[in-house]
């Protein structure tokens, strides 16, 4: 701070953690760009819809998961309504991944990491990974034959790299908590970062587009 030239220091608000945090929040996304009502003219392709579709599918996944949670972990085995909610949960997950993978390939072919957007790509990739972990623990939390078999198979992989004791796929209590608390929090947080980064930089311009064209 002391290296800031005198003239500039005058215009800064007095130093405080609160001010620093506010500055940080305010400057993360340029004014008006958090939820703009206009987009650059080049944003005209169906591929742009897939990011939003992924977000929408994630919303449905979380909502249906919350309904499943109301009845407890074994409810869906004994209730036809529970089974239907489980089907909703399953199919929204399949859609979520389908949209996400199309989104990923779209962003690849657009080289959408250009112009300081590398972190947007990285957070997207981490979201993909965290989502795979979440879906995987979901399969282990089903308390049915699939859970038995998938966990019996998966333990060898996770044990082979020495972390099977901390992430014990044979312990459905642990897997259920990862599935409904830890990993969804991770996916949610990384998704928020991802979308904020997209708004921070705006949608990437076409390859070879000139500044301000």
């Amino acid at each position: 701070m002391s290296s800031v030239p005198r003239a500039e220091r005058v215009h800064r608000p007095p130093d405080s953690w609160t001010n620093a945090l506010r500055e940080r929040i305010v400057s993360t996304v340029p004014p008006g760009q958090a939820l703009p009502d206009r987009q650059p003219v080049y944003v005209s392709s169906w591929i742009y819809v897939f990011g939003v579709l992924t977000l929408a599918a994630l919303t449905v996944v979380v909502a249906t998961g919350c309904v499943l949670a109301v009845g407890g972990s074994a409810w869906w085995h004994v209730s036809s309504l529970g089974h239907f909610v489980n089907s909703l949960h399953l199919w929204s997950v399949e859609l979520f991944f389908g949209f996400m993978v199309i989104h990923l390939w779209g962003k690849f072919w657009m080289a959408a990491w250009r112009g300081n957007r590398v972190l947007t790509w990285v957070t997207g990739a981490v979201a993909f990974l965290a989502s795979i972990g979440t879906a995987f623990t979901g399969y282990l939390s089903q308390s049915n034959f699939d859970s038995q078999w998938i966990s019996a198979e998966a333990k060898d992989g996770i044990n082979s790299i020495g972390v099977g004791a901390w992430f014990n796929v044979l312990n459905p209590g642990q897997m259920l908590l990862w599935h409904v608390v830890l990993l969804p929090l991770a996916v949610g947080a990384i998704t928020v970062m991802h979308v904020v980064l997209v708004r921070r930089h705006g949608v990437v311009p076409p390859i070879d587009a000139e500044d301000g064209e």
């Binding site: 650059p40 300081n116 957007r117 311009p205 587009a209």
Partner: peptide, 8 residues
């Protein structure tokens, strides 16, 4: 590549 905020 620029931030998009300067495009039409």
């Amino acid at each position: 590549t620029r931030d998009s905020h300067s495009f039409a």
